[in-house]
């Protein structure tokens, strides 16, 4: 297969579309993301741009389309430009973030209520959910927190990238994304069941349970070590949960 030279596109042949950046009109290639289009138009990011991969939450864009009342949002690095869109970047939105000593918390709903009492000013208008570029059901996790369900809030808010657009639209003046972060922290540290077998294993290691075996391996010459490794008893791929090795001396 050979590349046909005529099909190569050049800058002059690229379809251009008009977009409005903070009210000023620019012609940009139709295939660009908003972020690249802004750079194409001559702007240089010194802030409001991070991973360029859709996870850091630094480059949220708010835009509208002519003749359409709706507010649209997206991450500039992920959203392709649309003709006639008019946009602005929202790299940061101020929102109350309380300070707390995490070690002193225990994972009860009261702790969230105490740190963020404004939680109860939510009126369920749903503007937060509508504006979320990650399609997080923001109103639903706030509803969950109001009723004290930290785990549900942590799960619902899992995709949040902390861009802050929810807070920008909130009529109750809530800092949703900071509250959700606290919920996820509490959930991870205090509410998710602890892996008990891991703790047992760590305790065994600390108690020196595996020291003799390690000392034995360390004392081997290279050849013996290699043979020991190669002839080791392996768990068959189809083994059930009750499988145990023949040699139980190291368990």
């Amino acid at each position: 297969m050979s590349i046909v030279p005529q099909e190569e596109t050049t800058a002059t042949e690229t379809k251009m579309v008009p977009i409005y950046i903070m009210g000023k009109r620019y012609e940009v290639p139709a295939t660009l993301t908003i972020m690249k289009a802004i750079e194409y138009a001559g702007y240089k990011y010194i802030r409001g741009c991070g991973c360029r991969g859709g996870v850091c939450g630094a480059c949220s864009t708010v835009y509208r389309k002519p003749g359409d009342y709706k507010i649209y949002t997206g991450l500039a690095c992920q959203t392709v430009v649309e003709p006639e869109m008019y946009l602005t970047q929202m790299p940061f939105y101020p929102a109350n973030r309380t300070t707390y000593d995490f070690g002193e918390l225990t994972g009860t709903p009261d702790e969230i209520n105490r740190l963020y009492p404004e939680l109860f000013r939510c009126v369920a208008c749903n503007a937060c959910t509508k504006v979320c570029p990650m399609d997080v059901q923001v109103m639903d996790y706030i509803a969950a927190l109001k009723r004290g369900d930290i785990q549900a809030a942590a799960e619902i808010s899992f995709d949040c990238i902390q861009c802050g657009l929810c807070a920008s639209r909130c009529m109750g003046e809530l800092p949703q994304y900071h509250i959700a972060q606290l919920a996820r922290r509490l959930n991870g540290a205090y509410l998710t069941p602890k892996a008990e077998h891991l703790q047992t294993m760590c305790a065994n290691i600390d108690a020196g349970r595996y020291d003799p075996g390690l000392a034995e391996l360390k004392g081997m010459d290279l050849e013996t070590l290699r043979n020991t490794y190669q002839s080791r008893e392996m768990e068959p791929a189809s083994a059930g949960e009750d499988w145990t090795p023949q040699d139980k001396s190291h368990l």
């Binding site: 009261d110 009492p117 404004e118």
Partner: peptide, 26 residues
């Protein structure tokens, strides 16, 4: 002012108190 509530009061109070109080008084 919601942020001036006493922490011990928030701990004691049912959610419905804050929801209704903030509705009416903020």
């Amino acid at each position: 002012e919601p942020s001036n509530l006493q922490p011990e009061d928030v701990t004691e109070m049912p959610q419905v108190a804050m929801v209704s109080g903030f509705r009416k008084l903020t």
